[in-house]
Structures are given as C-alpha cells and as structure tokens.
Simulated assay, not measured.
Amino acid sequence: MNKKNIIILKLRKLTKFSILLCKKALTINKWDIKKSIEYLRKKFKSKLKNNNYKINNGIVLSKINKKKNIGVIIKINVNSDFIINNINFKNFIKKIIKISFKSNINNIKDLLKNSIVKNEILDKNIMFKDTIIISNFYKIKCDYINNYNHHNYKFSSIVGLKINYKNIYNLNYNFIYYISKNIAIYIIINNLIINNKKFLIKLNKYFFSKEFFINNKKIFYKFKYNHKKFLYIFKNNIKIKYFKYYLIN
C-alpha cells in the first residue's frame, strides 16, 4: 500500500467520510490531514439539519470528580435514538464530560464556546447525518457532591451539600454519602424539576422532617443512631446547597 492510500484511509477513519471524498479533500489540500478535516467540515456544515426544533431523544448524564467537590450534569439531545449505543457516540460524550471539568468552563455558554466541543459536535453531526445538540449543562462546586444516573440514562440528578466543618468530628463520610445518594434518588423518583431557591428550602425541610426519618429507618440501623442524634447531626452539619435534575423530554 502506497503512502497516499495510507493517508486516505487515516482520514476516512477520523471523519467516516467515503474514500472518494477523503481523496478529493486531500488532493485539494495537498495531502494535509488537518486542512482536509477543516475542508470537509466547512463543506458539509451547510447540509446539516436545522437544530431549531425540539428533539426528544438523547441521554442525560451526571459525573463527579474524585474529590467529590465538583460535579457536572449534561443533557445531549439527538434526532434518532439508534445512535445512542454507538461506540463513537459514547466516546463523544466521555470527551465532552472530560472537557466540562476544566476550570474555565462554568456554564453551557462556556462549554459551547470551547473549540474542541464545537468541532466534536459538528463532526458527530456529519458522521451520523443527524442532529446532535447539547441542550442543557450545569456545573456544581461544593463541599461534597453526589449524583444518581438512572440505568437507561433518561433521568439524572446531582446534589451539592454544604458541610459544617466546625462539627466535623460528628460526621463520617459513609453517612454523608448515604444521605446525598438518598437525596439524589428522591429527586428523580419525585420528578422534582423545579430548580429554584424556594423549592430548595422545601427540599431541606423535607429531609429534616419526621416523614423522612420514618421512611428511612434503615439509615438508623446502618449507622446505629437514634432519631434525636441523627436529626442533630444532620441539622448541625449538613445543608442541601444545590441540586439539579434533568430528564429527556
């Protein structure tokens, strides 16, 4: 196999365009792969479907860092549901999530301005001949963060807790993990899509209420706390600071 054929196959692998189109792009751009990719992007950008309509398929995913103090939740919509299980689509999501943890990205505007993200979205639109858009993105920075992804990735939630470090001797992180996971799951089960301060106060009140303690007796058995001690630890050490919930719709 000669050198030119190797370059053609490499470009095809990168872009998923036909061999004839790859050869044409490389010939025009003097066999420069980077210039050829840009050429193909510009050529086919205008042929993509219009993104300005509602698409109800896609995936919702939340992730947290190893320190559990930064978390992201992202909603990616697609026109056709069949591409969701494609390995290239999964790798695309992983790449976007990884970029979203960068310090200069704090909201959806920052994410969509990122040149790598823009090119990745365009490339995947071209590759799948479909509409792929990042419709929602949220980033949390807090003392302790936990998340919950439903198994089909159609629902996801993320919760940020404020920890009172003055009383840290009363806490253990298994307790914090268990509570935050419980909150994240509760948000999904009850479809709590109202994301505002008033509702956050209501959510805090619920987790301090007798109803929560009665319904979650297993927490007492797990940590061997009585009702009063548990309530004291929770009220004096943990506050639900942020939460976000997305579903595909």
Rank of each mutant, 00 (worst) to 15 (best):
K102D: 14
Y169V: 08
K154L: 15
F175I: 11
N125S: 13
M127G: 06
L161M: 13
V159I: 10
Y153C: 05
K166H: 12
N104R: 12
S180W: 01
I188C: 14
I134W: 08
N164H: 00
V117W: 06
V117Q: 00
I99W: 07
I176Q: 05
L111M: 02
K162T: 04
I187R: 08
I140F: 14
F155Y: 15
L171T: 01
F101D: 11
F199D: 01
I176Y: 02
K202R: 12
Y186R: 06
L200E: 04
F137P: 09
I189K: 15
N182Y: 08
N172T: 06
I188R: 04
N147Q: 14
Y177V: 03
F175R: 04
I132C: 04
T131E: 03
I179P: 08
F199R: 01
L111E: 03
K139T: 00
N107C: 10
I185D: 03
A184F: 01
Y148V: 00
N174Y: 01
N125C: 15
S103N: 10
N170I: 14
N170D: 10
A184D: 06
N125W: 10
Y186K: 06
Y148K: 00
E120Y: 11
C142E: 12
I134A: 02
N147W: 13
I134F: 02
I163S: 00
L122C: 11
I187E: 10
N170T: 03
I185N: 02
L161Q: 03
N106H: 05
I132E: 09
I179N: 13
K141V: 13
N125P: 10
L112H: 10
K109Y: 12
L161S: 07
I187Q: 11
I179E: 13
I163M: 04
K139R: 08
Y138F: 13
K162E: 13
